[in-house]
């Protein structure tokens, strides 16, 4: 059994909610991430999926140590990141990089592409002698599919997809081991999304990368992920390998998310019912007691409000875990959802 490259154990991030300007009074806490654990194996891709506001970006910032967790530990290659001094942390940053969501805000508009992609070498001058940097930057641009002669251009001279490639080249420059991709394709046109995801895949094969790949939609991560974790209100409610999550999800929330994913199979499309979740996501400042999904779950029972379901193994195959009192491996094509509690609408035909 190989050692995990990254181990996240029960990390929690609470943001204080304050009132008042000079004398700040704490009136509550936003539980952005509330007890998340997972292991990341070298070379694998862990997809993280969840609706807006469920804490995905916060989790990414914690993993990157851009913020310190309220509690919990993160080990990178067996080392507890909380115990790294500033200098050691700076060195560690070479190994774990990030690609951000919005290609329009993630590049400094007043720097040339050459300076943006070359900045990692300025920050870590020992990586490359000064004379080699321009060539390295041009290589990086070429690797991500950009014209290496464009190094003197500015970000606003590129399209969204091209800018995202610039961001990827910057993330790749220090030859990291892990890249955290925080919704790297959400801001792009659908046609460009596939190109960029393909780029991520070929880079992974080429450079042996390990990915945490965040998205708010299960269909985006399916192609690239080995395992997928589904988040709801700061917690992972279900995690498992790609096959188990997509073929027999057991948490009602996963089932609902999946029912919204278009299927390529025309037979399945006709049979399938779409589960439309009622209501909004509750505020992370005041999450429901017990199971956090209970306000929108069609299988809710009394126990769901009283006890929080732990994340436990599902089925016999191993590797699939869900946090539900009534987990049920369900083929997503089944129609066993009681109609009474649900707003069922046909999948749109096209």
């Amino acid at each position: 059994m190989p050692e995990p490259i990254l181990r996240v154990e029960n990390v929690v991030k609470h943001y204080p909610l304050t009132r008042g300007i000079i004398f700040k009074k704490e009136i509550g806490q936003v539980r952005a991430v509330d007890g998340v654990s997972f292991d990341l194996m070298p070379g694998e891709t862990l997809g993280i999926v969840g609706e807006s506001g469920c804490g995905k970006s916060t989790l990414a910032r914690l993993v990157m140590k851009l913020e310190d967790p309220t509690s919990g530990q993160i080990w990178f290659e067996g080392e507890d990141m909380a115990h790294l001094g500033p200098k050691a942390m700076r060195a560690k940053r070479r190994d774990i990089q990030i690609v951000l969501q919005d290609p329009y805000t993630s590049l400094n508009p007043r720097m040339t592409v050459g300076d943006i992609v070359g900045e990692p070498f300025d920050i870590h001058p020992s990586v490359l002698p000064k004379g080699d940097r321009k060539r390295a930057v041009q290589d990086l641009l070429e690797v991500v599919g950009l014209n290496p002669e464009h190094i003197n251009r500015y970000p606003h001279q590129f399209s969204g997809g091209q800018r995202q490639r610039i961001g990827i080249a910057r993330g790749l420059a220090l030859k990291p081991k892990i890249i955290v991709c925080d919704e790297p394709v959400s801001a792009l046109d659908v046609s460009v999304q596939a190109q960029v995801i393909n780029l991520f895949e070929s880079l992974q094969n080429e450079f042996n990368l390990t990915y945490i790949f965040i998205a708010h939609d299960l269909s985006v991560v399916r192609h690239i992920s080995d395992r997928v974790g589904v988040m709801y209100l700061g917690k992972i409610v279900e995690v498992g390998d790609e096959a188990s999550i997509y073929e027999h999800p057991s948490h009602p929330y996963t089932q609902a998310l999946l029912s919204a994913v278009p299927v390529p199979d025309p037979v399945g499309r006709d049979e399938r019912k779409r589960i439309v979740l009622q209501g909004d996501v509750p505020s992370p400042a005041n999450p429901p007691s017990g199971c956090r999904f209970r306000t929108r779950c069609w299988k809710v029972q009394d126990i769901c409000a009283e006890q929080e379901p732990p994340l436990v193994q599902i089925g016999t195959a191993g590797g699939q875990y869900a946090a539900c009192h009534f987990p049920q491996e369900r083929d997503i094509l089944d129609n066993d959802v009681p109609t009474a509690a649900l707003d069922l609408s046909e999948m749109p035909q096209e």
């Binding site: 060539r135 390295a136 290589d139 990086l140 599919g145 500015y154 030859k175 080429e206």
Partner: peptide, 28 residues
């Protein structure tokens, strides 16, 4: 320059450098 990357252009670039592309560098 094989320094930072083990292999060049393993990725078929979907953005062929346009021959008539003479746009200059423009800072804000």
């Amino acid at each position: 320059a094989p320094e930072t990357v083990e292999k060049e252009t393993y990725l078929g670039s979907d953005l062929p450098p346009a021959p008539g592309d003479k746009e200059k560098s423009r800072s804000l």
